[in-house]
């Protein structure tokens, strides 16, 4: 139960941060990617702001043996920079540019602009399902 509450709190804080920062507005996100249009640097401030608590958190993580509410850290340990990583990132960037939405803002927008966000989120889950059933991990 404790873990569920922590995850819900983290998700809500994350979603609130997305809403405050303007990242729930696809046109603002796309304006960051629009170097030859009316470029909007807001996204860089969001990323910069998010780096501060997380850089501190990684310093703490290296000094503690286990997380507060679980037995052990379960963190990605893959080091290979392979075709899946590079191709996946490039493909994701294409969709991000077209829609101005990445997964976090899209899901958060389900509560803010449900009619507009739902088609994207459903298609995104469809894309995840296609990956799940076609690509071996």
């Amino acid at each position: 139960m404790m873990r569920i509450i922590i995850a819900l709190l983290s998700g809500a804080l994350f979603g609130g941060g997305l809403a405050i920062s303007g990242m729930a507005d696809p046109m603002r996100v796309r304006a960051f990617l629009d170097l030859f249009g009316a470029w909007d640097p807001t996204l860089a401030f969001v990323m910069g702001g998010a780096m501060i608590p997380m850089a501190l958190a990684w310093m703490v993580q290296r000094r503690v043996g286990r997380p507060f509410a679980d037995r052990a850290f379960a963190l990605p340990d893959t080091r290979a920079i392979d075709g899946k990583l590079t191709l996946g990132a490039i493909v994701f960037g294409i969709g991000w540019g077209i829609g101005g939405l990445c997964p976090g803002p899209a899901i958060a927008s389900l509560a803010l602009s449900p009619a507009a966000a739902a088609p994207f989120v459903l298609a995104m889950l469809g894309g995840m399902a296609i990956h799940h059933f076609t690509i071996k991990s």
Partner: peptide, 20 residues
């Protein structure tokens, strides 16, 4: 953007240090 970013980073820090 900075305020929202700090909230996002704090949320991610809670996930990391709380649940690993």
């Amino acid at each position: 953007g900075l305020i929202g970013g700090l909230m996002i980073g704090l949320a991610a820090a809670i996930m990391l240090l709380g649940l690993g």
